[in-house]
């Protein structure tokens, strides 16, 4: 039993087993209350569908569609750029409300400065400019009247 004597192998192994059993338990124990459409859980996504949008079109269709039609969707600022990845391995924290200081600021620093000088310090951009559903974003670039149909 040489393996057991080395606690640096043992500790991660125990953590892995515990985490694994937690998610296994979570996904098998409460079958009666599982949601439709949310069959795939974070961390179990097949590799060819690992793009967040592929699943969230089905699981959170409204949020996904709002993003798709928004400015961020149009210019392909994808989910993980602001919300991070569920595995939490990246630099962007996995959260529903991205931090102004670490996420929004990367592109919108000039706008944030302008807003702060106009209206004082607010804790969240999202209070006024809802990331997905604000009219500022919703249907962006779709309002142009130049969309004619050409055969």
């Amino acid at each position: 039993m040489t393996v057991l004597r080395n606690k640096w192998i043992l500790i991660p192994a125990v953590v892995l087993v515990l985490l694994g059993s937690y998610f296994l338990f979570l996904n098998t124990a409460f079958t009666g209350t599982r949601c439709e459409g949310a069959r795939v859980k974070h961390g179990q996504v097949p590799e060819d569908q690992s793009d967040c949008y592929t699943c969230h079109k089905k699981t959170t269709p409204k949020a996904a569609q709002d993003w798709y039609e928004s400015k961020h969707g149009m210019i392909l600022v994808k989910c993980y750029v602001c919300h991070g990845q569920p595995d939490g391995k990246g630099a962007v924290p996995f959260t529903a409300t991205p931090s102004v200081a670490t996420v929004c600021q990367r592109c919108h620093a000039p706008a944030i400065d302008l807003m702060q000088s106009k209206f004082g310090v607010r804790d969240q951009c999202e209070t006024c400019h809802m990331f997905h559903t604000s009219s500022l974003h919703h249907g962006a670039y779709g309002k142009s009247e130049s969309k004619e149909k050409f055969e």
Binding site: K62, T95, A96
Partner: peptide, 9 residues
Amino acid sequence: YLNIEDELE
């Protein structure tokens, strides 16, 4: 910790 149980529910 966030577990968005989504709009469907």
